[in-house]
Design a protein around this nucleic acid. Sequence first.
DNA 1: GGAGACTAGCGTCAGCATTG
DNA 2: CAATGCTGACGCTAGTCTCC
Length: 236
Amino acid sequence: MSKCGRKKYIKTNLRQMTMETVESQQDGSVTDSVAESKSAHMQTQTGQSSVPTLAQVATIAETDESAESEGVIDSHKRREILSRRPSYRKILNELSSDVPGVPKIEEEKSEEERTPPNIATMAVPTSIYQTSTGQYTATGDMPTYQIRAPATALPQGVVMAASPGSLHSPQQLAEEATRKRELRLMKNREAAKECRRRKKEYVKCLESRVAVLEVQNKKLIEELETLKDICSPKTD
DNA sequence: GGAGACTAGCGTCAGCATTG
DNA sequence: CAATGCTGACGCTAGTCTCC
């Protein structure tokens, strides 16, 4: 980032942080979801609790209006509240079982089988659209993009170490630790990309579903009006 | 045209879930 | 039960928009 951008960023965040601080100081309870999530995350930094989802945060904000602080919630209940929701893949697949036309997010395995290794493929963004009959249709370019990290694509300088038993010196151990870290970071990087892709797909799917339901709702309302007219003809 | 606001996307960390 | 996967949150960067 340029220095200008960096400055902008800091300023923006300072403003947000200030506002959050003011809010939390004003009423003693956190109403801002962002502030809530941030504070929750801070707790995780100190090893206190897990991170709530946005929806969960909203729920917490709603249900805990009367509660003065988190201390009121006993640890078990809080754990339930903060429990993790299923992955986007699961949610979308459950969704797809309700609505036959909704495309499933494909399993990792099949993606790998489909995509030759060492090849990064790019496709135009997935378009999930509805047909005139209200069915969801997924175009053929379902995998929005896939940048597969080839098995041999370890970062430069990262060498496949020998088995742990053959490591002797502290230096070797340090190198092994570094290598593991690099590997983990690389995998996590890819996982994060994939996760974001799925999330976008999931959101698109939900948006499509909303569109379909809105159309259906409109049609039903019109049908109802028609039936009303038929059943109660005007008496002039 | 410059400054600030807004947005999208990325890398990383942390912690729960899943798997072997 | 350790290793791995998944995902929310955070910090950051870069691009675009809007206002002056």
